[in-house]
């Protein structure tokens, strides 16, 4: 028997038992259609009738197709989720003038950081789009992307439940009117993960580690300070996002511990890409790529000498932070220098 026929004979209650992920699908069905979860679907759909169908903008045949497809995709998705992304490889293409890019292959490993340097409009968005689309020499740059050193499964392009790249930028805001814990529950719910409570608690703890000022699970997300919001976004992306690659567009130097933030992401085995012009952030990376005229112009490994320089820069930065704290506290700054 085809699955669609089997689905028709089952009740929503039975389907939920068999496929718990259907909860989110059923939630989006217009009110009143699945009014009794104990009745077979066939019966419920028969009762919809023409008038109700037109009123609700609901098509029963279409509904069944969508239900079948949803189950199919969730099964594929859970299969994909088991395969972790350990590395991304970029094979060279060309820049905006058609000149070939000057590298053999570029590797991004899990738990490593790559910084991306280049002015606005230089081609950062294009590089990111190539990764998101797992380009196969079929984008304007003609680059190709490999996942775990293999030609990737085309599902990466279209599977809506699993996108390769998560993004964090300074322009981002929380727009929902929820408390921190409600917000994280919602996110965990959409991912359908087990032991959500533990993960949520870990996220709040980690975010509080990153942010200077503490917040609680009951704090409304819209009233978090800039640093707290960023800390929560980073902790949430590290632990709850399904995307193996995280792109960060600068991290502001106030209200958040940047080193810990990056460590949190790499600790969760993310492949971290970071667009920045800040020497401290750029040197925290294992390598950096320089983008020019739409192409990758240069790939530079962070040298030992640069790491020493980083330590020095961090000292200066720490000093600046201390002064900032004193400034806030209303102290004189002169005697500390």
């Amino acid at each position: 028997m085809k699955r669609k026929e089997q689905l028709l004979l089952a009740s929503p209650a039975r389907l939920l038992k068999e496929y718990p992920f259907l909860k989110s699908f059923f939630m989006q069905v217009p009110e009143g259609i699945l009014y009794d979860h104990q009745q077979p679907l066939q019966h419920l759909l028969m009762e919809v009738g023409e008038e109700k169908s037109e009123n609700q903008g609901f098509d029963t045949g279409h509904f069944l197709d969508q239900l079948d497809e949803f189950i199919h995709q969730m099964e594929v998705f859970s299969g994909m989720a088991e395969k972790t992304v350990r590395s991304l490889t970029i094979l060279p293409g060309n820049d905006k003038s058609g000149q070939p890019e000057n590298f053999e292959s570029l590797q991004f490993e899990a738990s490593t950081i790559t910084s991306i340097v280049g002015p606005t409009g230089s081609g950062k968005s294009r590089l990111l789009a190539d990764i998101e689309w797992v380009a196969q020499a079929d984008t304007p740059t003609k680059r190709s992307v490999l996942i775990n050193n293999e030609k990737p499964n085309p599902d990466w392009r279209f599977a809506s439940g699993k996108k390769l790249v998560a993004q964090l930028s300074q322009n981002m805001n929380f727009v929902m009117d929820l408390s921190v814990s409600e917000f994280l529950e919602l996110h965990a719910g959409s991912r359908m993960i087990a032991n959500a409570d533990i993960v949520i608690q870990r996220i709040i703890e980690a975010a509080n580690e990153l942010a200077g000022e503490k917040f609680s699970a009951q704090t409304p997300i819209t009233s978090l300070s800039g640093g707290q919001s960023r800390a929560l976004m980073i902790a949430d992306t590290a632990m709850l996002s399904s995307s193996p690659v995280v792109l960060i567009d600068e991290i502001e130097n106030a209200g958040i511990d940047r080193k810990k933030a990056l460590a949190l992401l790499t600790g969760e085995e993310k492949i971290v890409l970071m667009a920045t012009h800040d020497p401290i952030l750029a040197l925290m990376a294992d390598q950096r790529i320089i983008i020019k005229n739409g192409g990758i112009f240069k790939v530079v490994k962070t040298s030992d000498e640069e790491r020493e320089l980083l330590a020095e820069l961090e000292k200066g930065d720490k000093k600046l932070q201390e002064l900032r704290t004193k400034l806030r506290a209303g102290e004189q700054l002169g005697d500390s220098i």
Partner: peptide
């Protein structure tokens, strides 16, 4: 580009539940 990653993921999960056959 202006909402958090979490909100983006929740939103696209909802869209997917409403229309699983579409390419998002």
């Amino acid at each position: 580009d202006i909402v958090s990653q979490a909100e983006r993921e929740v939103f696209s999960a909802r869209v997917h539940a409403v229309n699983p056959t579409a390419i998002v």
